[in-house]
Simulated assay, not measured.
Amino acid sequence: MQMYDTKPPEVKDALRRRRNDSLSLYLKHSLVCGVLSFIGVAVGIANIVVGVDDGPWHLTGGSLIPGIFSCICALLGYKLYQTGWAEQGDVDAGIKAKCFFIAHYVLNLLTTIISLAFVALSIVGIVWCSGEVQHYYVRINRVQYQKNVTCPEDRTAALVTGGLAAFDSFLIVVWCFLGTVFFCCYVRAFGFENRRRNNCC
């Protein structure tokens, strides 16, 4: 992939129009990312609170980490939208727009991978918590306490928050993967030459 700077005027104009047309898609993508991020952080915190006393449930953190990364993707997409419109009269996308364009792609790709891992972790937690409950006993001051090693005491809350975490993380995977597709579709419009010349859109 290399930058181009010698194109016929009509080609540059077409690329500028295509770039400007993409900005509304980036804004919509960022808004949905923001909603998924808010839900992911809220559910992730609830997931941790439910499992913080006993059991391994809190180790996954639910959708907290995917939610945080999704928030960063939303911010980058919005900054790309703002910068793109600020420079819409330019034939070239501009350095700032190009930087936000690449950063948006990288963060969406990274978020997709991380969120996929947390989907798997949440499913493992659900399966673990749905199985037979195992206990161990601790004696403190001659009083024997029963501890749960497979699931928090509030099993229903753990399963609900775990299920919501897995579902939200999956939606983040799908949505951020779509963000990487945008890169493939608009890479030339933002001032980069695709040597393979086979845009996916």
Results as ranks from 00 to 15, higher is better:
N108A: 07
L110I: 02
I140G: 00
Y78S: 08
C184L: 15
A189E: 05
A86H: 03
A46Q: 11
L121R: 08
V43Q: 03
G67E: 03
A166Q: 12
R17S: 09
A46H: 06
R17E: 14
R16L: 02
V127R: 11
V160S: 06
C201G: 14
C73W: 00
G34A: 10
K28L: 12
S30E: 09
P9S: 07
P152C: 12
F167G: 04
D5E: 13
L159A: 07
V181Q: 14
C176E: 11
Y186K: 01
L64H: 05
S70E: 14
L76H: 11
G44P: 00
G84T: 03
C73T: 02
R142I: 00
V50T: 09
I68C: 13
Y78I: 11
S70H: 11
L110G: 05
C185Y: 07
P8D: 15
N199C: 11
R188N: 13
Y145M: 07
T83S: 15
V124M: 12
K147V: 04
P56K: 05
V138P: 00
T111L: 09
F101S: 04
R139V: 01
A189S: 05
L64N: 04
V181E: 13
A157S: 12
F177G: 13
R197S: 15
W85L: 15
F118T: 08
W85M: 08
F192K: 04
Y26P: 00
Y186A: 00
C201R: 15
T161M: 10
I72V: 12
D92R: 10
I123G: 00
T111V: 07
R17G: 03
E153T: 07
M1N: 09
L107I: 10
G162Y: 02
L27Y: 10
Q2M: 12
F118S: 03
F118C: 05
L23R: 04
C71F: 13
G51H: 11
G125Y: 01
S37P: 04
L25R: 13
